[in-house]
Design a protein around this nucleic acid. Structure first.
Length: 561
DNA sequence: ACGAATTGCGCC
DNA sequence: AGGGCGCAATTCGT
């Protein structure tokens, strides 16, 4: 059963039962905002699917009232998918002009301070006209029903909506974070916390080494422009200060300089200021943004949640009596490519073992490192270097897989749209791109113009090449996590989220569950089972495995990393 | 002086 | 001539 949730006046909520096609069934029921959570929890035993415009708008309040929602339809996220999908291109929804449903969520993130939250409540609330959730739900059901493969799209929409629930739940629970342990890690690497504007001792010492090695007492590694000048004066022929270029040179200044930059990065991105800004009551609460990346990956807003450096992962510490179950999907993207392309040779290479080892065992390349760089290159569109050299070997052994990504690249170069397995489609190239290609076709187009157009064409091809793999991997990961979420709920039936195993972190192909220690083994089993489910859901009977590595740990740095 | 763009690097 | 991001600090542009 579906129940639509919509705002009624300033401070009420209307609940309307809907049938499968999205038509209203019984009479709508209006309740005051204060009674909303209770009204939802009363319905829970029958587990309806809650249909609402924006999970971030409705769900935080429910969680605070102790209500965990089992299933939902996030109309805004699903709208974006259907609006862009090639599978629903001729639907009423896709053909309609832009509306309130095309505007990104502006509901105040839960992580905002109270003061900001109050401010957000006063402004930034869009008018509701043209945004009737019941009407939108009907349009979405109709678009899916009229597509060539409603099952795949339905799965995608369900997974995306489950992700929206999980994102809010992870913000609600927070990632357990020991500020004390973090401080110890920083002190070990940098020295004691300095006064504002001062360098930590370890960086100050390295600065001395750099200046000595360059024979330049005023060298300033914090300024790329000045640093390039200093390096060139010392006879080091660089044009930029990035790590890649610096590493190629042999000079006593290079090593301390790279060490300095590494520490400088740690200090500015995840140093003491970061702790002050982001850790409260032993929890790090970033804002996750489902669907924040065009490929369907999540993005995050604030705190750099999806870029936590390995250096500080030791500060992610489970509560006393609790543990983390950390799991990641092994070689996810190559396996996704294997399944999408139906490459049986590659499926065999990855059967019951590390896929890269299997590629070596097949004789295609000589080392695991070569297999890995060649596969990544194939999926990213590398043409030069080691990766480019390995590619022909890979293509001889696995022609179907390699041709699959090549096809996606050629389509992009022609300006076409490509789609993931479940039907999320790539954006069309920007109008300037189209214009540039057209200009290059004109008679008398000069050489620089032709070259620039070709560069842009290849670049868009690399994007579409990667889109199909990265996007389908995101679909698998969402399905995995959504299934795991349901399984975790059954490990602690009726318990509030924070008192039973719950997800606390998600990083593209990796999940982390915070669990009472005695349930850790059960959680690990659910993680594996959910991964098997995800493979079956997306690819049915194809003989492609999606193994996961699972570690039960007290702190994040103990997971393989 | 200020906002926009760039650089550099962290994650997958 | 290698895909997708977010963030801080520097540098550019007006």
């Amino acid at each position: 059963m579906h129940i639509a949730v919509s705002a009624a006046g300033d401070d009420g909520v209307t609940l309307t039962e809907l049938d499968e096609a999205g038509r209203p069934g019984g009479a709508p029921v209006s309740v005051p905002r204060e009674a909303f959570a209770e009204a939802v929890s009363e319905r829970e035993p029958g587990s309806p699917r809650w249909v609402w415009d924006d999970t971030r708008r409705w769900y935080p309040g429910l969680l605070e009232a102790g209500v965990v929602v089992e299933r939902c339809v996030d109309l805004r996220l699903n709208h974006v998918i259907l609006k862009n999908s090639a599978a629903t291109a001729d639907s009423e929804l896709a053909l309609a002009p832009a509306s309130a449903w095309d505007v990104p969520s502006d509901w105040a993130p839960q992580a905002a301070s109270d003061a900001l939250f109050e401010l957000g409540a006063l402004r930034g609330r869009r008018p509701e006209e043209g945004a009737d959730p019941i009407e939108e739900f009907r349009r979405q059901r109709s678009a899916v029903a009229g597509s060539a493969d409603p099952n795949r799209l339905s799965l995608l929409l369900a997974a995306e909506s489950a992700g929206a629930l999980i994102a809010v739940e992870m913000e609600f629970a927070g990632l357990p974070w020991s500020a004390e342990r973090h401080n110890e890690l920083l002190e070990g690497l940098l020295g004691a916390r300095p006064h504002p504007g001062q360098r930590p001792a370890r960086m100050q010492a390295l600065l001395g080494d750099i200046r000595f090695a360059l024979a330049d007492p005023s060298a300033n590694p914090d300024s790329p422009v000045e640093l390039v000048k200093s390096l060139r004066r010392a006879g080091i022929d660089v044009t930029s200060t990035n790590k890649w270029e610096l590493q190629r040179h042999e000079h006593p200044a290079i090593e301390p300089l790279l060490a300095y930059k590494k520490l400088s990065r740690l200090l500015s991105a995840n140093g003491w200021n970061w702790i002050d800004a982001w850790v409260n009551d032993g929890r790090f609460r970033p804002v996750y943004v489902p669907g924040g990346v065009v490929t369907g990956r999540w993005a995050s807003d604030g705190g750099g949640a999806l870029q936590l450096p390995h250096q500080v992962r030791g500060a992610v510490v489970a509560d006393p009596g609790w543990l983390f179950v950390v799991a990641d999907a092994a070689q996810l993207e190559p396996r996704i490519l294997t399944a999408m392309s139906g490459d049986r040779a590659m499926a065999a290479a990855g059967h019951d073992r590390d896929l890269y080892d299997g590629i070596v065992a097949s004789g295609a390349v000589d080392t695991r490192a070569h297999a890995k760089v060649a596969m990544l290159g194939a999926m990213y569109g590398a043409t030069t270097g080691e990766s480019g050299r390995m590619l022909p070997k890979l293509e001889r052994a696995y022609p179907r897989a390699i041709r699959f990504v090549e096809e996606a690249a050629r389509a992009g170069e022609r300006g076409e749209v490509v789609s993931t397995h479940l039907g999320r489609s790539s954006p069309r190239p920007p109008v300037e791109w189209r214009q540039q290609q057209d200009d290059a076709q004109q008679e008398g187009a000069d050489e620089p113009l032709l070259a620039a157009a070709k560069t842009a064409r290849r670049s868009w091809g690399r994007f579409t090449r990667n889109f199909v793999v990265q996007g389908t991997a995101a679909e698998w990961a969402l399905s995995w996590m959504a299934g795991l979420r349901g399984r975790l709920a059954r490990l602690g039936p009726g318990l509030p989220l924070a008192q039973r195993p719950h997800l606390v972190f998600f990083l593209h192909d990796e999940v982390m569950v915070h669990t009472p220690a005695e349930l850790a083994d059960a959680v690990a089993a659910e993680v594996r089972a959910a991964a098997e489910d995800a493979g079956r859901l997306l690819f049915g009977g194809l003989p492609v495995q999606f193994p996961v590595t699972v570690a039960t740990v007290e702190s994040y740095d103990q997971a393989k990393g």
